[in-house]
């Protein structure tokens, strides 16, 4: 019996599986509890749009390992720090690569559990406007930090082949569409801002200005537990 199982496992492991290219569009919601995030938003929910391309680098039924390349964006963040009379805005751009390991449970082709890790860079662009001075231009600065994400979830997909008794090759497995749902933890290193009012574009005017020292606004931390939901297209 043991011998049979071992043989079966070896057969399964060596069996070729279809390689795929995934496109994922996701809405990510992180629960950011650090107080600095309150400068830019009125609750702790940090929502983000995410697009991710994945390509299967290793596949062996029922396992698959995908390499990922993605981009995330949050650009609507804005709030007022009443005690400082500062209106703050923040946009965040994430670029990352990752690995996703998934398994195709036998008999459940619509369900694919997975785990993934991602690493990359976060680019934050912040502006701070003095709420008391109508004509005051905004202080601006950008900052780059690192990001690491780890999480797991499930894909609920509809393989297109199921609609056809004998799908033509282009629609055969793995082409599928569905949704995914995952949870994880997103760590971003602190984004540090030292904003200043941008110099005038005109060179002569800029040279004529009295030299100005800006200030350190401090750090914003955007780490937190995250829930992701979105659409996946497997080609």
């Amino acid at each position: 019996m043991r011998r049979r199982l071992l043989v079966a496992a070896l057969v399964l492991a060596s069996a070729p599986a279809a390689r795929a290219t995934d496109v994922r569009l996701g809405a990510d919601m992180a629960w950011v509890q650090d107080s600095s995030f309150d400068a830019f938003w009125t609750n702790d929910l940090f929502s983000r749009f995410d697009v991710c391309l994945a390509y299967t680098t290793f596949a062996s039924v029922p396992f698959r390992l995908d390499a990922e390349l993605g981009y995330g964006y949050a650009g609507y963040l804005g709030a007022t720090a009443a005690f400082a009379a500062i209106e703050s805005e923040l946009s965040v751009h994430d670029a990352y690569v990752g690995l996703r390991a998934s398994i195709d449970p036998p008999g459940l082709s619509w369900l694919r559990p997975y785990v993934r890790v991602q690493g990359g860079a976060t680019f934050g662009l912040a502006s701070f406007r003095d709420a008391s001075a109508d004509d005051a231009p905004a202080y601006e600065d950008w900052s780059v930090g690192g990001l690491v994400y780890g999480g797991g979830g499930v894909e609920l997909v509809l393989p297109l082949g199921v609609f056809l008794d004998e799908p033509p090759a282009p629609l055969s497995e793995p082409m599928a569409f569905g949704i995914f749902l995952e949870g994880g933890y997103f760590y971003r290193s602190a984004l540090s801002f030292h904003p200043a009012i941008p110099a005038p574009e005109d060179e002569d005017e800029a040279a004529d200005r009295i030299p100005v020292a800006g200030f350190s606004a401090g750090d914003v931390v955007l780490s937190g537990g995250e829930l992701r939901i979105g659409f996946v297209a497997r080609l």
Binding site: V212, A213, G214, F215, S216, A217, G218
Partner: peptide
């Protein structure tokens, strides 16, 4: 000989100890 500083009253406001 003039120099200016801006924003110093908001210095470190992101790091405010809530």
């Amino acid at each position: 000989g003039a120099r200016s500083i801006q924003g110093f009253l908001a210095e470190g406001f992101l790091d405010t100890d809530a």
